[in-house]
């Protein structure tokens, strides 16, 4: 009965794995709900600051901030938002695949690329793949603070201010629903130009204390809020993707266990039949 024993050990090990994937699925489901909540809570601020920025684009400010001016693009900066941990299906890989395609297109056009990563998966990937990694942060956890992502943003904004990069983009997964996450690439800086700005009335804000200071503050907050929003959204995506991946793993484990159980029963039955035949033929011979 050596074959039977081997199969039994295998079944037991798969059962243990199934317990783990099942637990991870449930943990991911509850974390996803919380992440979704945080995503919804962060949304009003992002929406409002976008609205203010839109108003600003319609105004005719005397002072033009450098973030509002499109310039000739020679180098692009990417902020890549990924998860810290794996076991979440193709979430990160889908994002990276799209990113690599977009970066290759840039390089073919003779445009340089700088990368800044949030989350350890992205920094691992760009460590292997190559690319000019200028800043990274990881281990931001499930409940990120704005402070956690300020560092890389600061680095990229400085590069933008110095003219090292002429465009800043962010790549992350948008949360469509629990089953679908879409890799997204968005241009943050320079702010998209409004065509009708010329036709609107020539009004401008009153600034307190002064236009450069207020606009600096506002645009910095805008960039921070966009990145923060994308980080929070990516966490919700990570949990959703993990939940789905773990559900699939549990289902696969169930199927494997069923098949092995059948094989085990067959082997046992075959062994019994052989033994019986041997006894009967032995008795007949006597």
């Amino acid at each position: 009965m050596s074959a039977g024993k081997e199969i039994r050990t295998k079944i037991r090990s798969i059962q243990n794995t199934r317990k783990i994937t099942n637990a991870m699925e449930m943990v991911a489901a509850s974390k996803m709900r919380k992440a979704q909540q945080r995503m919804d809570q962060a949304r009003p601020y992002a929406d409002k600051i976008r609205q203010v920025i839109r108003h600003l684009a319609h105004a005719n400010p005397e002072y033009r901030h450098s973030y509002l001016e499109a310039r000739e693009v020679r180098r692009v900066g990417y902020i890549v938002v990924s998860s810290d941990r794996g076991l979440c299906g193709g979430l990160n890989n889908n994002l990276f695949r799209q990113l690599v395609r977009s970066m290759k297109a840039q390089e073919e056009a003779g445009i340089g690329v700088d990368v800044c990563t949030i989350g350890s998966r992205a920094s691992q990937f760009f460590g292997r793949w190559g690319g000019n990694l200028v800043a990274e942060t990881s281990q931001i956890g499930d409940r990120p603070n704005l402070q956690d992502v300020v560092g890389p943003i600061q680095t990229m904004l400085e590069r933008f201010d110095n003219g090292d990069i002429d465009e800043l983009r962010v790549c992350y997964n948008t949360f469509v629903n629990a089953m679908t996450q879409r890799p997204t690439e968005e241009t943050i800086l320079p702010l998209p130009q409004q065509e009708e700005a010329e036709t609107s009335h020539g009004w401008d804000y009153v600034y307190e204390p002064s236009a450069p200071e207020v606009l600096d503050d506002l645009l910095r907050r805008y960039v921070e809020s966009v990145i923060y929003q994308s980080v929070v959204e990516n966490i919700a995506c990570e949990q959703a993707a993990r939940m789905v991946a773990m559900k699939a793993a549990s289902d696969n484990a169930d199927k494997l266990i069923d098949e092995l159980q059948l094989a085990y029963n067959k082997a046992r039955q075959a062994a019994i039949t052989t033994e019986l035949t041997e006894i009967i033929s032995g008795a007949a011979a006597v």
Binding site: H55, L56, Y207, E208, V214
Partner: peptide
């Protein structure tokens, strides 16, 4: 409370951005 002091706003105020 803006950076230049207290700021009272009523409807139809002129557009303003303040810290």
């Amino acid at each position: 409370r803006s950076s230049d002091g207290e700021l009272g706003v009523m409807p139809r105020h002129v557009p303003l951005l303040a810290q």
